[in-house]
Design a binder for these strands. Structure first.
Lengths: 195, 195
DNA sequence: CACCTCAGCGTACGGTCGTACACAACGCCC
DNA sequence: GGGCGTTGTGTACGACCGTACGCTGAGGTG
């Protein structure tokens, strides 16, 4: 079904330019002409390499989501035990995968599209499935799911709030969700040994 | 500074139509002409009542975010103790405030705008501040913040994932974040009374 | 050489867009 | 009545849009 396409370099340049443009002006502001200008290709190449705007957007966000979840997966697979897995999650939220404003903006744009159009929801579903699978290497499925939601939420806060929760608060939240609470071990002690 | 405007009915109709349209086709698909048609007002009224598209969007999302956080605040203020506050949070996520796909879509659209344009970030910041304040009626500030992030994340999952976490999982997550864990009271017992 | 194929491009068409602005309709004061 | 500010509308202009489509020119084949 996939049509044979040519000059993958040019194609890739277009996709990269498209992502850069989305990050800058949003999906709404993207046009064939602007992408072509940014990628330094003639306008005619747009319709030649992509059947239409939709196809271009789908490929661009496909590449983006794959690259983000690759990073996520790799980072999680490096963890050797639950403690390092928690640390990895904290790092992911605070720095690595969603480190740049660019990635945050792109993520929001994709989510917005996905909220309305099923074609893009396939991308986000695949992304979320991979995230959960990566988390399930170290946590039970229910916890993985909750953790995934928490990561999502913390990410949003980081994107929108200039004074987003600092590392310590994020660590605390991750510990609470993963239900291995060093923070209230004292409380346990008290309950265990009521003086 | 605010210019005196006339016929608030018409103005309101335009704003409502604008929100409906955003929910249906996204901010990208909104145009003066479409809003005018949906609101059943002449095209000329658009520029008469609003200085431009930006002003219209800002007012529309302002109304939306205020109405959502009103609902949130009221629901939280009805809670009498921590237990009912938790229940209120669960209800908010699963049904009330973000109950409709419309609200979810609008929320995403707003976040996307806010991620790129500071003018809209003011709206989301005010919204988040109100949410946190409402939560702080029942939880300490740090917990309120984490809970807010969790709510955000769960909301996204509900918007994008057709088989989003069910009520039980959400309840569990809220309990874990608010760190009063009925679920592992058994565990506590075990720790307390190792048989 | 002639001929053909096809990747790739330039251009132009039909349409939608935001918005400026001339103008109508109305109420109010003299 | 006439004059006039205010409220609201219809229209037209220039810009930008997606994309269809005819063309170019390089390379393969005889």
């Amino acid at each position: 079904m996939t049509v044979r396409r040519h000059d993958p370099d040019r194609r890739n340049r277009i996709i990269d330019a498209c992502l850069d443009l989305i990050a800058e002006v949003g999906v709404a502001g993207v046009s064939h002409r602007k992408v072509a200008a940014l990628a330094d290709v003639p306008l005619g190449s747009m319709t030649y390499h992509f059947a239409g705007m939709d196809e271009l957007l789908r490929e661009a966000f496909g590449r983006f989501s794959r690259s983000v979840s690759d990073g996520f997966e790799q980072r999680m697979s490096e963890a050797t035990d639950v403690a390092s897995a928690r640390a990895a999650v904290v790092e992911i939220v605070t720095r690595d995968v969603f480190g740049t404003q660019r990635d945050l903006v792109l993520t929001h744009e994709l989510y917005t599209l996905a909220a309305r159009e099923p074609a893009f929801r396939e991308l986000t579903n695949a992304w979320m499935a991979r995230s959960r699978a990566a988390l399930e290497r170290h946590f039970d499925p229910v916890t993985a799911r909750m953790l995934d939601a928490l990561i999502e939420g913390l990410t949003i806060h980081r994107a929108l709030d200039t004074e987003a929760p600092a590392g310590a608060a994020i660590t605390e939240a991750v510990h609470r969700i993963t239900a291995s609470p060093p923070t209230w071990s004292a409380e346990r002690q008290m309950i265990g040994n009521p003086s």
